[in-house]
Protein backbone atom coordinates (compact mmCIF):
# COMPACT_ATOMS: atom_id res chain seq x y z
CA UNK A 1 0.00 0.00 0.00
CA UNK A 2 1.17 3.51 -0.80
CA UNK A 3 -1.36 5.40 1.23
CA UNK A 4 -0.58 8.90 0.03
CA UNK A 5 -1.17 7.82 -3.58
CA UNK A 6 -4.28 5.82 -2.72
CA UNK A 7 -2.61 2.65 -3.97
CA UNK A 8 -4.31 0.28 -1.58
CA UNK A 9 -4.05 -3.12 -3.28
CA UNK A 10 -0.64 -4.79 -3.49
CA UNK A 11 -1.64 -8.09 -5.03
CA UNK A 12 -4.74 -9.92 -6.16
CA UNK A 13 -4.55 -13.38 -4.62
CA UNK A 14 -7.72 -14.83 -6.10
CA UNK A 15 -10.36 -13.47 -8.40
CA UNK A 16 -13.39 -15.16 -9.94
CA UNK A 17 -15.50 -12.73 -11.97
CA UNK A 18 -18.19 -15.33 -12.67
CA UNK A 19 -18.68 -15.98 -8.97
CA UNK A 20 -18.09 -12.27 -8.31
CA UNK A 21 -15.43 -12.89 -5.66
CA UNK A 22 -11.95 -11.56 -4.98
CA UNK A 23 -9.26 -11.82 -2.33
CA UNK A 24 -6.47 -9.25 -2.20
CA UNK A 25 -3.31 -8.68 -0.20
CA UNK A 26 -2.60 -5.24 1.25
CA UNK A 27 0.54 -4.51 3.24
CA UNK A 28 0.17 -1.48 5.47
CA UNK A 29 3.42 0.49 5.27
CA UNK A 30 5.53 1.00 8.35
CA UNK A 31 6.17 4.59 7.36
CA UNK A 32 3.79 7.07 5.73
CA UNK A 33 3.14 10.79 6.23
CA UNK A 34 -0.48 9.77 6.83
CA UNK A 35 0.58 8.44 10.22
CA UNK A 36 2.12 11.77 11.19
CA UNK A 37 -1.37 13.18 11.49
CA UNK A 38 -3.36 10.05 12.27
CA UNK A 39 -2.49 10.22 15.05
CA UNK A 40 0.52 11.92 16.61
CA UNK A 41 1.88 9.37 19.07
CA UNK A 42 -0.81 6.82 18.17
CA UNK A 43 -0.29 5.78 14.56
CA UNK A 44 -3.30 4.00 13.10
CA UNK A 45 -4.68 3.42 9.59
CA UNK A 46 -7.56 5.87 9.08
CA UNK A 47 -10.99 4.29 8.79
CA UNK A 48 -11.55 6.29 5.58
CA UNK A 49 -8.63 4.42 4.03
CA UNK A 50 -10.03 1.09 5.19
CA UNK A 51 -13.20 1.98 3.30
CA UNK A 52 -11.12 2.98 0.28
CA UNK A 53 -9.28 -0.35 0.46
CA UNK A 54 -12.57 -2.26 0.51
CA UNK A 55 -13.89 -0.13 -2.35
CA UNK A 56 -10.81 -0.80 -4.47
CA UNK A 57 -10.95 -4.53 -3.69
CA UNK A 58 -14.54 -4.71 -4.89
CA UNK A 59 -13.75 -2.45 -7.81
CA UNK A 60 -11.29 -4.94 -9.25
CA UNK A 61 -13.83 -7.74 -9.33
CA UNK A 62 -16.28 -5.44 -11.13
CA UNK A 63 -13.57 -4.54 -13.64
CA UNK A 64 -12.92 -8.23 -14.19
CA UNK A 65 -16.59 -8.98 -14.60
CA UNK A 66 -16.93 -6.22 -17.22
CA UNK A 67 -13.62 -7.26 -18.85
CA UNK A 68 -12.33 -3.72 -18.43
CA UNK A 69 -15.08 -2.36 -20.70
CA UNK A 70 -16.29 -0.02 -17.97
CA UNK A 71 -15.06 1.37 -14.70
CA UNK A 72 -16.69 1.43 -11.27
CA UNK A 73 -16.80 4.65 -9.25
CA UNK A 74 -17.65 4.69 -5.57
CA UNK A 75 -21.09 6.16 -4.95
CA UNK A 76 -22.26 4.91 -1.60
CA UNK A 77 -21.02 3.16 1.52
CA UNK A 78 -23.60 1.39 3.65
CA UNK A 79 -23.30 -0.23 7.06
CA UNK A 80 -19.58 0.47 7.35
CA UNK A 81 -18.03 -0.82 10.54
CA UNK A 82 -14.46 -0.24 11.73
CA UNK A 83 -14.07 -3.09 14.17
CA UNK A 84 -10.45 -2.78 15.24
CA UNK A 85 -7.45 -0.51 14.92
CA UNK A 86 -4.92 -1.29 12.19
CA UNK A 87 -1.32 -0.36 12.90
CA UNK A 88 1.59 0.43 10.55
CA UNK A 89 3.17 -2.77 9.25
CA UNK A 90 0.09 -4.97 9.56
CA UNK A 91 -0.99 -7.22 6.71
CA UNK A 92 -4.55 -6.83 5.54
CA UNK A 93 -6.60 -9.20 3.44
CA UNK A 94 -9.44 -7.68 1.49
CA UNK A 95 -12.29 -9.86 0.31
CA UNK A 96 -15.34 -8.81 -1.63
CA UNK A 97 -18.38 -10.51 -3.07
CA UNK A 98 -20.51 -9.00 -5.80
CA UNK A 99 -24.04 -9.09 -4.43
CA UNK A 100 -25.79 -7.25 -7.26
CA UNK A 101 -24.60 -6.68 -10.81
CA UNK A 102 -26.98 -4.05 -12.08
CA UNK A 103 -27.05 -2.15 -15.34
CA UNK A 104 -24.87 0.88 -14.79
CA UNK A 105 -24.25 0.07 -11.15
CA UNK A 106 -22.97 -2.67 -8.89
CA UNK A 107 -23.07 -3.58 -5.22
CA UNK A 108 -20.50 -5.54 -3.24
CA UNK A 109 -20.11 -6.77 0.29
CA UNK A 110 -16.54 -6.29 1.48
CA UNK A 111 -14.50 -7.30 4.50
CA UNK A 112 -10.98 -6.41 5.63
CA UNK A 113 -9.22 -8.81 7.95
CA UNK A 114 -5.92 -8.75 9.78
CA UNK A 115 -4.54 -11.83 11.47
CA UNK A 116 -7.77 -13.64 10.72
CA UNK A 117 -9.85 -11.05 12.56
CA UNK A 118 -12.26 -8.65 10.95
CA UNK A 119 -10.96 -5.09 10.87
CA UNK A 120 -13.73 -3.51 8.81
CA UNK A 121 -16.75 -4.37 6.71
CA UNK A 122 -19.20 -2.53 4.49
CA UNK A 123 -21.68 -2.72 1.66
CA UNK A 124 -20.31 -0.62 -1.17
CA UNK A 125 -22.14 0.66 -4.22
CA UNK A 126 -20.67 1.90 -7.47
CA UNK A 127 -21.81 3.65 -10.60
CA UNK A 128 -20.33 1.71 -13.51
CA UNK A 129 -19.72 3.44 -16.80
CA UNK A 130 -17.24 4.04 -19.61
CA UNK A 131 -13.68 4.99 -18.73
CA UNK A 132 -13.61 8.81 -18.74
CA UNK A 133 -10.53 8.98 -20.97
CA UNK A 134 -7.63 7.01 -22.38
CA UNK A 135 -5.21 8.20 -19.69
CA UNK A 136 -7.10 6.60 -16.84
CA UNK A 137 -7.71 3.46 -18.88
CA UNK A 138 -3.98 3.15 -19.54
CA UNK A 139 -3.15 3.79 -15.88
CA UNK A 140 -5.66 1.21 -14.71
CA UNK A 141 -4.38 -1.32 -17.21
CA UNK A 142 -0.81 -0.72 -16.02
CA UNK A 143 -1.88 -1.06 -12.39
CA UNK A 144 -3.75 -4.26 -13.17
CA UNK A 145 -0.53 -5.85 -14.43
CA UNK A 146 1.40 -4.70 -11.38
CA UNK A 147 -0.99 -6.36 -8.93
CA UNK A 148 -1.56 -9.63 -10.74
CA UNK A 149 -4.93 -8.98 -12.33
CA UNK A 150 -5.37 -11.88 -14.78
CA UNK A 151 -4.66 -10.84 -18.35
CA UNK A 152 -7.67 -12.77 -19.67
CA UNK A 153 -10.02 -10.40 -17.86
CA UNK A 154 -8.55 -7.32 -19.51
CA UNK A 155 -10.47 -7.61 -22.73
CA UNK A 156 -13.90 -8.52 -23.97
CA UNK A 157 -13.49 -11.83 -25.76
Amino acid sequence: MILEYFQMIDRIVEIDPDAGTIRAHCQVPVESPIFDGHFPGYRRLPGALMIETMAQTGGWVILARRRFASMPFLTRVESAKMRRFVEPGETLEGTATLTHDGSGFAVIQAVLTTGGKTAASAEIRYAVGPFPNETILAAMTQKSREIGFPEEYLHVS
Binding site: R76, H100, D101, G102, S103, G104, F105, R125, A127
Partner: peptide, 23 residues
Protein backbone atom coordinates in the same frame (compact mmCIF):
# COMPACT_ATOMS: atom_id res chain seq x y z
CA UNK B 1 -28.78 10.17 -11.42
CA UNK B 2 -27.21 8.88 -8.21
CA UNK B 3 -30.54 8.51 -6.46
CA UNK B 4 -31.91 6.83 -9.58
CA UNK B 5 -29.22 4.15 -9.26
CA UNK B 6 -30.37 3.48 -5.70
CA UNK B 7 -33.96 3.29 -6.94
CA UNK B 8 -32.87 0.87 -9.67
CA UNK B 9 -31.12 -1.31 -7.08
CA UNK B 10 -34.25 -1.43 -4.93
CA UNK B 11 -36.51 -2.11 -7.94
CA UNK B 12 -34.19 -4.86 -9.21
CA UNK B 13 -34.32 -6.54 -5.81
CA UNK B 14 -38.06 -6.07 -5.29
CA UNK B 15 -39.04 -7.47 -8.69
CA UNK B 16 -36.18 -9.89 -9.32
CA UNK B 17 -35.20 -8.16 -12.56
CA UNK B 18 -32.31 -6.19 -14.02
CA UNK B 19 -33.51 -2.88 -15.38
CA UNK B 20 -31.40 -2.20 -18.49
CA UNK B 21 -30.46 1.35 -17.52
CA UNK B 22 -27.44 1.45 -19.80
CA UNK B 23 -29.54 0.53 -22.83
Amino acid sequence: SLDFLDIAFAVDKAFGIKMPLEQ
